[in-house]
């Protein structure tokens, strides 16, 4: 009898404990409270989850991966999106020079960039930040990043300094990536494999030019704003939780076109070209104008120069 009671007691205590644990878990779930953002996760084929690193895949595997992506984009955006894998050109090293005397702060480059690179829209993610500085100073901390679109530029007494990825020859972002999801291509462009990035944001900490952007959510990319001409390493649509950055419009430049920011610049402040070609314009600028690079003291060796008239 007493033994029975003991067992009963034990069972009662046990069930109480289980009940209590269940209640605690349930209460926790209730207290977790959901936030107002929508979760817009695309349907993905299994193969995409187990896809290898871009540089580790065989040409056939890359083809498969591209086909898989194009299928997903088709169903996700209801639009044919072409994902190219154009390799870098031989004997080409891209470089950029920007004339800060010519730059008038119109932000046309910023706009053109967002139109071709399929970034998150509304609010727009932008790769280029145009800084408005007082003439006579060069302290970035005194710069205005958000100068009004309602007031005419150039404002009296101001000059403008656009900053984007400098495609460093010694990129600290590449050194710091734990899974080699970002690397420097032979044509000098630092790229990201959006299917390999784990989203730890180490590269973001390392970049001295604040050139990297993170997808805090699944990008809001309306069908009519998609540029269907994409490259695997550049402007193909991204997902939440991965890093992205300016690639000097790799999808255009590897075909011989100019980057969108150069094409859009109304003042001709931007000079783009092949650093290995002694006859190129960029080489003439480097050899004949007084140029400087931002934060050269950090030994990042940017391939983005500034010059003035």
């Amino acid at each position: 009898m007493t033994k029975n009671k003991q067992i009963q007691d034990k069972a009662k205590r046990l069930s109480l404990k289980i009940l209590g644990l269940g209640a605690a878990v349930g209460a926790g779930a209730l207290a977790s409270d959901s936030t107002g953002y929508p979760a817009t996760n695309p349907e993905k084929e299994w193969g995409e989850h187990f896809q290898s690193h871009y540089t580790k895949m065989s040409p056939e595997e890359v083809k498969e991966a591209v086909a898989r992506l194009e299928r997903r984009y088709k169903s996700q955006y209801d639009k044919e999106i072409k994902v190219a894998t154009t390799p870098p050109k031989e004997h080409v090293l891209f470089g950029y020079a920007l004339n800060i005397t010519r730059c008038k702060g119109y932000r046309e480059c910023v706009k053109a960039c967002t139109e071709v690179n399929n970034q998150d829209k509304n609010p727009n993610m932008e790769y280029i930040r145009v800084l408005e500085l007082d003439r006579g100073t060069f302290n970035l901390e005194e710069a205005s990043h958000y100068y009004s679109a309602e007031k005419e530029v150039p404002a009296p007494g101001k000059f403008y300094l656009p900053i984007q990825c400098h495609q460093c020859e010694n990129p600290p972002c590449v050194a710091t990536c734990p899974v080699e999801a970002t690397w420097k291509e032979p044509d000098g462009i630092v790229v990201v494999d959006y299917n390999w990035c784990i989203g730890c944001r180490m590269c973001m900490n390392a970049c001295p030019y604040w050139a990297r952007r993170f997808n805090w959510r699944n990008p809001n990319l309306p069908k009519d704003k998609i540029n269907p001409d994409t490259h695997y390493l550049s402007n193909r649509p991204r997902e939440k939780g991965v890093m992205e950055k300016c690639t000097f419009c790799l999808q255009r430049t590897r075909k011989g076109e100019m980057p969108a920011c150069q094409a859009a610049c109304p003042t001709g402040a931007r000079v783009f070209g092949n650093l290995l070609d002694p006859k190129s314009e960029i080489r003439w600028v480097l050899e004949n104008k007084t140029v400087f690079r931002l934060k050269e003291d950090l030994n990042t060796q940017p391939k983005f120069w500034y010059f003035s008239d």
Partner: peptide
Amino acid sequence: LLNCTECHNPHVPQIKPRKPRSAPAVRAG
């Protein structure tokens, strides 16, 4: 190359100030 006259009006060569494109936004949320 774009000819000088594509950007500069030869009669009024100086380019007038104008309004820039919109200011940067902060991320959603």
